[in-house]
């Protein structure tokens, strides 16, 4: 069950969120929204790859689907924007069920590549749909009206509560029966299967949850930009960021993606301020992930945590 200090953490996040939304300037809020939504996506990838053992190269497809589900539904109906946003993760998670049932016939590398192909197909079909308006892009106009005020303030509160809530929810989940099965799956799939874990069903659950999570985080992020094109929403950079964050921070640990996002964004802001180009930044990130994998293949967090425990 949920523990008191975990409830307190969510309440604290809500309080800090409301306070931060009032105190921080627009630039900082925008950055914070990016950090938090990226963290949610990376944690989703981690849940599927780090815990479930299913490396996906195509989870950017759910980011794109989530964004377009939000923009198209909000623009075409008079439903409140935030209600639509709340519905997006559930709708996408449900829609992911049939895809998951097909994709899980594929093993390991076949699954990874198969997901990537799915992402490419969906992106190119999205281009051809007249209502997506292709490269011209789509502007968020809920109910046909332009958004008034500063949406990033509300997005920041939601994103902070969602990020902390996700950590708490995952901690609680890992204590349940299904959570223990997930940990067994992470440590040894064959042994988990032998101990009676329904691996196929667990994979499907993780797949749908991570699909919905990526969709929700994507939709949340694009409320701050108010504008989207298929090129942007379905871009490979989403999955690259999710993977780099998890690999550097720590696969199969809850704290890993927190550390990873801090490194990814911290280094980016630092290097941009020091005058390095975006390409140079990504060269460093690539080098860093290779170095971390060779020294500590499960990421930095397990190694750091080990040092602290000894010391």
């Amino acid at each position: 069950m949920i523990r008191p200090f975990e409830l307190a953490a969510v309440a604290l996040a809500l309080g800090l969120g409301i306070l931060g939304a009032r105190m921080l300037d627009a630039g900082l809020l925008f950055l914070a929204c990016e950090v938090l939504t990226l963290f949610i996506m990376a944690q989703m990838w981690n849940l599927l790859a780090g815990y479930g053992g299913q490396v996906s190269l195509g989870h950017q497809v759910f980011v794109g689907i989530g964004v377009y589900a939000l923009f198209l539904t909000a623009n075409a109906t008079t439903l409140p924007l935030w209600l639509v946003l709340a519905g997006v993760p559930f709708a996408v998670a449900l829609a992911a069920i049939p895809l998951g049932m097909v994709m899980f016939h594929l093993k390991a590398a076949y699954f990874a590549v198969g997901m990537w192909v799915v992402a490419e197909i969906v992106q190119q079909i999205a281009y051809k749909m007249p209502f997506v308006r292709g490269t011209a892009g789509l502007v968020l106009r809920p109910g046909g009206q332009s958004i008034q005020g500063y949406p990033e303030q509300i997005v920041f509160v939601i994103a902070l509560v969602a990020a902390v809530g996700l950590m708490v929810a995952l901690r609680v989940f890992l204590r349940t029966r299904a959570g223990l099965a997930t940990l067994a799956l992470r440590d040894n799939e064959g042994a988990a299967r032998a101990a009676g874990v329904n691996v196929q069903r667990l994979h499907l659950i993780l797949f749908c949850v991570t699909a919905g999570g990526c969709a929700g985080a994507g939709a949340l992020y694009y409320i701050t930009t108010l504008y989207v094109t298929p090129n942007d929403a379905f871009q490979l950079n989403w999955i690259v960021a999710m993977m780099v964050v998890t690999v550097i921070g720590g696969t199969g640990t809850l704290a890993g993606p927190v550390l990873g996002v801090a490194i990814l964004i911290g280094l980016r802001e630092g290097m941009t301020a020091a005058g390095f180009s975006g390409d140079q930044y990504w060269i460093v990130m690539g080098l860093l992930s290779v170095a971390v994998l060779l020294v500590s293949p499960r990421g930095l967090w397990p190694t750091l945590a080990g040092i602290f425990r000894k010391g």
């Binding site: 690259v240 993977m243 780099v244 690999v247 990504w282 060269i283 990130m285 690539g286 080098l287 860093l288 992930s289 290779v290 994998l293 060779l294």
Partner: peptide, 9 residues
């Protein structure tokens, strides 16, 4: 994942 990092580089 190592080859992925190399590809990014």
């Amino acid at each position: 994942l190592v080859t992925f990092g190399l590809a990014v580089m």
